[in-house]
């Protein structure tokens, strides 16, 4: 029982990190019809720049802020330089973002060095509580908390603000949004930057959780995010949360019981969804 609970907490924490990555991916896909294979690059840049700042200033909060700023800046550059020239062309987008992913990944090694870096959680998040017999690791709860906060803030924005409505409308029908006098390019840019910032946030939060960071983890982790986007339904924000928690828990339980097959089970899950419900669990109506 305790074990199950611990695994569940692990799964939810992993799931929340995947959610942060997948949320941006799914929004960018839903709104701009762009499958951004460079998304994992934003994740590692968030992790490295955030950790660097965290180590320099000794403040994790500053580290998180730095990661978010990095995400916004790289997101802006990516949208303007990499994505703009290839809007409306899936194949070129896939190709170009894949190339950019490689560049981002290798640049990490150039800027921060090729070796892994160890990262510990900040003092105030270190350690654990006991509730009954159950050990609750603080940092994991912290990740779950942040994930929930992000989800609810965004859910509020989507429901209650004009920009949120425009984004949702844009996911369904871009041309109509433009015909109603809204500059969709501007909306694209904002969403892309926000999505990039979420990926970077996921990266910095992931760093103390896994204890080490390395350049290749971007691609590894983003594959999980892609799986989530497909399972949840491309373009669905809510779907990305549900699917991320599902994949996170699957990952945690499999990693404990059959560690060698954890990624494979998630891949299998995606294959099953692709076969039986290709529009995902929460399809977005066009």
């Amino acid at each position: 029982m305790d074990l199950l609970f611990v695994l569940l907490i692990n799964g939810l924490a992993t799931g929340m990190l995947i959610f942060l990555l997948a949320a941006g991916l799914t929004l960018i896909f839903g709104l701009m019809d762009v499958l951004n294979f460079a998304h994992g690059g934003l994740f590692i840049w968030g992790a490295y720049s955030g950790v660097w700042m965290y180590h320099v200033t000794n403040s994790f909060t500053v580290g998180i802020a730095a990661a978010i700023v990095t995400g916004l800046v790289i997101g802006l550059v990516t949208e303007k330089v990499i994505i703009r020239p290839v809007y409306g062309n899936h194949i070129q987008q896939i190709l170009i973002t894949l190339g950019f992913m490689l560049v981002l990944q290798e640049l990490i090694k150039v800027v921060f060095g090729p070796s892994q870096k160890a990262v510990a959680p900040p003092a105030f998040l270190e350690g654990s509580f006991m509730v009954g017999d159950i050990v609750l690791i603080k940092y994991r709860l912290f990740i779950i908390l942040i994930g929930l906060v992000v989800f609810f803030v965004f859910a509020y924005i989507f429901k209650q603000t004009r920009i949120g409505l425009i984004v949702r409308a844009g996911v369904m029908n871009k041309e109509m949004v433009q015909s109603l006098g809204i500059n969709i390019k501007l909306v694209f840019m904002v969403v892309f930057m926000v999505g990039a910032a979420l990926a970077a946030l996921s990266g910095i939060l992931h760093a103390p959780y896994s204890g080490v960071i390395y350049a290749e983890m971007g691609l590894e982790f983003s594959i999980l995010a892609f799986i989530v986007v497909i399972i949840g339904g491309m373009g669905s924000f809510k779907g990305s949360l549900v699917a991320a928690l599902l994949v996170g828990c699957m990952q945690a339980f499999m990693a404990y019981y059959v560690p060698s097959l954890s990624l494979a089970t998630n891949m299998l899950l995606m294959v099953i969804v692709l076969v039986f419900r290709p529009q995902g669990l929460f399809p977005v109506k066009g």
């Binding site: 409505l165 029908n173 109509m176 109506k285 066009g286």
Partner: peptide, 8 residues
């Protein structure tokens, strides 16, 4: 095609 935002 009316261009209604179906989920809104």
């Amino acid at each position: 095609d009316q261009g209604i935002f179906a989920d809104l």
